[in-house]
Design a protein around this nucleic acid. Sequence first.
RNA 1: CGGGGAGUGGCGCAGCCAGGUAGCGCACCUGUUUUGGGUACAGGGGGUCGGAGGUUCGAAUCCUCUCUCCCCGACCA
Length: 514
Amino acid sequence: MSNIRHALNVKREEDFAKWYQEVISAADLAEESGVRGCMVIKPWGYGIWERIQRLMDDRIKQAGVQNTYFPIFIPLANFEREAAHVEGFAKEMAVVTHHRLIADGKGGLIPDPEAKLEEPLVVRPTSETIIGDAMSRWVQSWRDLPLMLNQWANVVRWEMRTRMFLRTSEFLWQEGHTAHATREDALEETHRALEMYRACVEEDLALPVIAGEKPENERFPGADETWSIEAMMQDGKALQAGTSHYLGTNFAQAANIQYQDREGTQQHCHTTSWGTSTRLVGGLVMTHGDDDGLRVPPRVAPHQVIILPILRDKPEDDALLAYCEDLRAGLAKHQALGEPVRVLLDKMPGKASAKRWDWVRKGAPIILEVGPRDMENGKVAAIRRDTLWNTESGKLATEFVSRDVFVSGIGQLLEDIQDSLFREASDRRDANITRGVTEWKDVVQFYKSNGKYPGWVEVQWSKPTGSALEKVVEQLKAEKLTIRNVPRGSEPADGVCIFTGEKAVERILVARAY
RNA sequence: CGGGGAGUGGCGCAGCCAGGUAGCGCACCUGUUUUGGGUACAGGGGGUCGGAGGUUCGAAUCCUCUCUCCCCGACCA
């Protein structure tokens, strides 16, 4: 318990924001770059992102969506077309105005005034406009629909305040863009993407989420409907982990995406867009991290098993390494969670004990220590990252098991870890959603008295619009609260609106958010 | 972008108020010791003190400007 000596210097309960940063650096995920709001993603962090990409990409392709790549630069005129979109993004755009540098005469360089672009290019904050432009050329007939595209790319949004992975000026993501003949088809796609995100994030990243529709004030600029999956972090705040938008015909009208229907008349397409980003890595940290660093769920772990030979700089090391290599090959032949087990034999020089703590902080699901005596006895010393400590003794809960038993059970073990991480997170999430609050003062009181771990509150409302909604948003803002979403498939409303006192029409989740 | 805080070897910090030419812990390297393990001891390497300009005989320390990061707010994935 208290005698446990943790691998990090900051504990979650002491200072969650500081702890988060320490995990990012201690787990070797990323570091500051010196460029405002931009980060360098290091091998372990990028490896996790690559796993997410891989699993998400498989799901995207299974749905019949094709990958493409569009330019990072968007002509200003192109970007200007959709009014709400412009209004939403204009204030956070990076703009390219010159194409050449010249010496400033003081040993430095400045943009060449002679090389000013006739029309500035904006760095994409998202690609609806430029992809819409292509769609207008690619779609002619109802036979061309649906057109379903995706791209993996970087985007730039000039953020006021940034946080590693959660909100950076440049981030990596996937953006799906589809065009359909009818509203029904586009809505179906919007929900299909949302469900795909729910499944990927819950099953692969082990982050329990609540899928639902965003209220009007939280909609994507230019969307008719915005849906999200919301995950609860360990400090009780909500993290939007993925969004899916039904764009109506707004972008189709702006970009002139039309098709000729079976009757020969021109119709505007109904489009959708949906995205998930490197923010998911931040969600992984704030959901599965503990006071010893990160815990990576096996499905997204670049390496699921780390073999650490206890090398002693002696001739016997060769035999031990051969034994470990044999162990590695044996494990790699097994399947876990539908894929070959990913094993790393860490032969890097250095003390095994120091390397063990490095892997603990990084969150490799299983660490195997193999010394000469293990080799002799045919055993391995196995450490499960998700249940690291023996809380009674305050020591690591290392298990000495027979090598053969361990190898044949690896698939089941990794599955157990994946499941238990998800269960731990979803139990915590469920325990911290409070339902049945009917008075606004109780909501205020709730957040006053649960400052450390606010959690979420479900309330009923009358779904006001326009200025009435603005008033509600102001009221929430005063308590640092936001409406997360209207959970999909929740019970119908049966009370009165907590804000207006009118008859309630639906249930919403209220929370503090990242 | 407003308010507050901070940038000193890889990490965490002291020194700055009362200018004199850089220090501690961890990590790292070498050696010895130890060997079911976050070992111990000894020796050693590494920093133009975020950057630029200024004051001064002399600046990590004082002044000006600037960049970056953190916290709070406004904005947002």
